[in-house]
Design a protein around this nucleic acid. Structure first.
Length: 566
DNA sequence: AAACAGCCCAACCGCAGAGTA
DNA sequence: CTACTCTGCGGTTGGGCTGTT
């Protein structure tokens, strides 16, 4: 589509076309440049002609001179863009071919948002074109609940990244991209699996493959469910999403017909499920997917696979989530978790954008929670000796203790429980410690991949929003019982850990005490929920049963879940 | 057929990094 | 070292197109 085609196309350039009256410039956003008003907006064919002539004479470059030498009332930047995107020779117009699309996907998996470099691999295509295509693709896939990268592409990219390969001059270390890759292609930050690798043999689904990260494997295993189980790719957007929701036992009545799927989550009981479980889908549309142990290809794994930890951002029911910077108002954030992978920017934006209008959101900004959690941790450690024997390589920075505090709470407890009880046989402590950094640190593009440290992590304090009323819990329980009957195997495991739960409640009380009136009530609510109903916990673990234990663990206490989901 | 909503894409802006005078 | 220019990128905007109601 070209705006040019809508304008005077006779090829004759009138003075007005080149330098429209100021009044018109005002409306089109023209700007003055050394007394010359620069035109904005769609290019006319006449302008194109001038630019082409100029480039023929002077070659590309020195774009700011175009306006001076040719009389074209366009800024150099505009000229460069116009030339690069539309006028230069050998430009390929029209839709991307399948081969090109495939290449873009592969290149993006390797490069991230390096549009220009990607364009270099696609003769005749421009960076802008590729960017637009990709953004469109993102939207489309988010709507459809599809991954941005086919598993094999993701796998390969992950593999290459892991090996530190530099593919075609591509810096596979591109950080932002790594985040994106994680987020968009179900790649779980490797940190999750440090412990898994350290405990090889525990999970048969994490084979030892040199140079292949467990996350890569996860990606692999996710592939089946991704395309087959979660939601039919043929399903069409919100309509299909609504239909899907209607399929959820016990939930159909709550479905609003005009809301994107996850908008609904914010307003009804399902939101807590979604939030607490990282916005995973507690149901599996694919009844054939029966492998409860499969790391990725399972129910409830979708969200984690998507890296949508932040999807569990709690919002008060009436508060619309702030739109991400990416313009996906219709379903972008509304579909967290279902949709693959919001970009991490999205996540980040979201984190930075607390819900407004309620007291519940305030702690996040104060940093108070950090201190509270830290203190709680301190309190806790007086009761339970705390050892940092996590098998991971994470380095908890003292200043960042907030999260690790919350996590260490569990860490301690799980050590007491005895890790062998874990369904995954995984060292729960290590998993737990590693969980949070992933979900929190990993949410920021400005931070290094959450592989080693917690640097920069901030405990988010939406835990207030996370308060589970017994009713909520019950709803969740019912729903999950119905939808995830085969993952209850973890319940035994968890029930054996009832001591953990008790201790957890103690911890909550400690925190509640520290929180004071407003917050403590929420906290105590959670405590009550925990103490009065094990089922909620159990179900929480059930949902995550097929996922790395870290998720199960982070799931248990809703506030910790939240922390880990930020 | 009309109204509407959503999609697509060209083009813009601001910012940052690199190169150069 | 500073200022300037060019280039690339992320994010955004606005209007035409298209599909749906």
């Amino acid at each position: 589509m070209s705006h040019t085609t809508n304008e005077s196309d006779d090829g004759v350039l009138s003075r007005d076309q080149i330098e429209p009256p100021l009044a018109e410039e005002g409306s089109s956003g023209g700007s003055a440049n050394g007394g010359v008003v620069l035109k904005k907006g769609p290019w006319t064919s006449a302008e194109d002609g001038i630019l082409i002539e100029y480039v023929k004479k002077h070659g590309e470059g020195n774009w700011n001179a175009v306006q001076k030498h040719s009389g074209l009332s366009r800024c150099g930047k505009s000229c460069r863009l116009r030339w690069a995107n539309h006028l230069r020779p050998n430009l390929k117009k029209g839709a991307f071919t399948q081969e090109e699309e495939q290449l873009i996907i592969e290149l993006h998996a390797k490069m991230g948002n390096k549009w220009a470099r990607m364009a270099a691999h696609l003769p005749g295509r421009t960076d802008n074109e590729i960017k637009n295509y990709w953004n469109t693709r993102i939207k489309r896939h988010q709507r459809a609940g599809l991954p941005l990268y086919p598993p094999e592409v993701s796998f390969q990219a992950s593999q290459e990244r892991q090996l530190g390969l530099n593919v075609s001059g591509i810096n596979t270390r591109d950080k932002g991209h790594q985040d994106l890759l994680r987020t968009n292609s179900y790649e779980i930050p490797d940190v999750i699996f440090d412990s898994l690798k350290a405990n090889h043999g525990i999970s048969p689904y994490v084979p030892e493959l040199p140079g292949i990260t467990a996350s890569s494997i996860l990606v692999k295993s996710l592939s089946s469910s991704q395309y087959g189980s979660f939601m039919s790719p043929m399903m069409h957007r919100q309509k299909r999403l609504r239909e899907s929701m209607a399929l959820i036992p016990g939930y159909s009545g709550s479905v609003k017909t005009d809301s994107p799927l996850f908008d609904q989550f914010q307003d009804n009981s399902f939101d807590k499920v979604a939030q607490s479980f990282g916005l995973c889908f507690p149901f599996d549309a694919d009844p054939t997917n029966k492998n409860p142990q499969s790391f990725g290809g399972n129910r409830g794994s979708h969200t984690l696979a998507n890296g949508n930890f932040s999807a569990s951002k709690p919002t008060s029911g009436l508060v619309k989530m702030e739109l991400p910077s990416l313009q996906y108002p219709e379903d972008g954030l509304g579909s967290w978790g279902t949709s693959p992978p919001p970009l991490l920017e999205t996540v980040d934006t979201f984190i930075q954008s607390p819900p407004t209008g309620t007291v519940e959101s305030s702690p996040r900004n104060s940093g108070l929670l950090d201190a509270l959690l830290h203190e709680a941790k301190t309190l806790s450690s007086t009761k339970n000796h705390s050892s940092d024997k996590s098998s991971n390589s994470s380095t908890v920075i003292p200043g960042e203790l907030a999260e690790s505090s919350a996590l260490n709470i569990c860490e301690t407890e799980w050590e007491d429980l005895g890790d062998p009880l874990s369904p995954l046989g995984q060292t729960a402590t290590s998993l737990f410690t590693e969980c949070t950094p992933i979900s929190t640190c990993g949410s920021s593009l400005d931070e290094p991949p959450a592989t080693e440290t917690l640097t920069g992590c901030n405990a988010k304090s939406e835990l207030v929003d996370q308060a589970w009323s017994p009713e909520r819990e019950k709803e969740t329980t019912t729903l999950l019982d119905v939808t995830c009957p085969d993952i209850l195997q973890a319940s035994d495991w968890l029930e054996q850990g009832s001591g953990y739960i008790k201790d957890q409640v103690v911890m909550m009380d400690n925190i509640a005490t520290l929180l004071g009136d407003d917050l403590s009530s929420h906290y105590k609510q959670m405590s009550a929920g925990a103490s009065t109903s094990n089922q909620g916990w159990r179900l929480g673990s059930c949902v995550w049963n097929n996922m790395p234990a870290v998720c199960q663990m982070s799931e248990l206490p809703s506030e910790n879940c939240y922390l880990s989901n930020l």
